[in-house]
Design a protein around this nucleic acid. Structure first.
Lengths: 250, 250
DNA sequence: TTCCTTGATTGATCTGCATCAAGGCAGACC
DNA sequence: GGTCTGCCTTGATGCAGATCAATCAAGGAA
């Protein structure tokens, strides 16, 4: 864990706001956390509500506390592509830019922890670790985006679905208690078929068909429309097209 | 231009190494530039040579001085997706990670300006502006990646080709002298048809067919295989599917 | 010159996913 | 109960782009 205090324990002893352990580190604790504390505020959104429209003025940066939000781009004729999925602790917004580049939408009820941009930028200038932490997070997102480019450009519909399920399963598993690598995983899909389609560059019909196919082939078990059980993670990973070096739970 | 000295003039009076004006700013000049100067070194590669393989140890970060390099991901069965195009002044590598995540390949003869990772990281810790500048660059790349996700997921073959041509034309134009918005633009394609296909998530045959179609329709003029003239930028932009708010030369 | 090689073009055919269309199911509300 | 309404499933059909394959053009090298 290097010189930083363990992020998990740090998160535990400082309350709910995830920006504390994602955007800053324990080294900054004494002064900067206090300042962050002073400029932060919370916002809530209902499922389906739009947080911000592409092109709108955006005078804050924020971090997801609970719930799920999506970033989407839309073409004039209505074609849509989701370009990001924001889960708790993910960061939105960009220091140094004043308008939003994407539509941000709450897909579930959502609570975000916001910071007005100007004070946040000022704080960043005086606090090297915040910029470094943000850089680290942004590089992670860039890697994820590039992984997604491979999926969009080269994977088949079945591989796309399997990859999405694997990603959700992994992120979901890492939010719960760490535990021995379980053989079966169960979770609720946070997205409708249409949202899955927008994420994967498919139509909702194709998503539905491939879900049915994976179910028929025993790769997943569907209980209702949303509740998914994955009996064997290995079997799922075989369907993703990725070279899985066994690193499911990293 | 805020308090920073104009990046262009700064680049001009400090020689060829682009990291100077891309990764740091004039405020750091006195001390940090000197230190950067001390730890930097150059590397050259021939066209076609691989700079680094995905998974290899990577103990440096670098910036392209001249030439063009690509980042690609490859699946086990050989499907390839390009996930980045590095033009002069672009940055590769990631502080805080020791292995490469993608194959980096020189598509033309290439010169890179390298910094061993450890000293660079140390320098970054003591120099807030470097981290901030890198953050800015990374956010730009993230935006570009997300734009590319829209292309890969939702655009037709013809729109993909037109978009790629528009991007190359724009980047090429911005490297040359600033000038009045010219009506016609001429440049050499830095990529083979196969590389274009890997970038666009198509096959090389489809790339070739769509290039011929654009030529037949008078959107582009081909002189040989590589030399492209775009008689009307507006006509090209109409083919990209983007809502072009006239912002071709930003 | 002729032979190779490398990259590009063009044609014929195939197929995976989109599109169009018709239900089905479960919860909300009367 | 009935009937919306939102979300999902399933079927029939069409087409954009993949695949397979032949040909071409431009350089080298012998």
């Amino acid at each position: 864990m290097s010189v930083h205090r363990d992020a998990q324990s740090f998160a535990n002893d400082c309350g709910a706001c995830p920006i504390r352990h994602r955007a800053v580190c324990a080294r900054c604790e004494t002064d900067e956390l206090v300042k962050l504390e002073q400029i932060k505020y919370y916002r809530s959104y209902q499922a389906g509500q739009t947080v911000i429209w592409s092109g709108d003025r955006m005078d804050f940066v924020a971090s997801v506390v609970t719930g799920i939000a999506t970033l989407t781009q839309t073409m004039e004729d209505g074609r849509r592509q989701m370009v990001g999925l924001l889960l708790p602790s993910d960061f939105v917004g960009r220091p140094g830019r004043s308008t939003a580049a994407y539509d941000v939408t709450a897909t579930t009820d959502l609570v975000m922890c916001c910071f007005r941009k100007k004070p946040f930028e000022d704080l960043m200038t005086g606090t090297p670790h915040i910029a470094q932490r943000l850089l680290e997070m942004t590089l992670d997102e860039l890697d994820a985006a590039r992984e997604w480019m491979l999926l969009l450009g080269r994977k088949t519909a079945r591989e796309k679905i399997a990859s999405l399920l694997a990603i959700i399963a992994r992120r979901d598993a890492s939010l719960k208690e760490p535990r021995a690598k379980a053989n079966a995983i169960t979770f609720d899909l946070p997205l409708t078929r249409e949202e899955m389609a927008d994420y994967l560059g498919l139509t909702l019909e194709t998503v539905s068909r491939q879900m049915s196919a994976l179910k028929r082939d025993g790769v997943i078990v569907l209980d209702g429309k949303r509740h998914v059980t994955i009996p064997s993670i290995d079997m799922l990973m075989e369907q993703t097209g990725d070279d899985n070096d066994g690193g499911f739970l990293v």
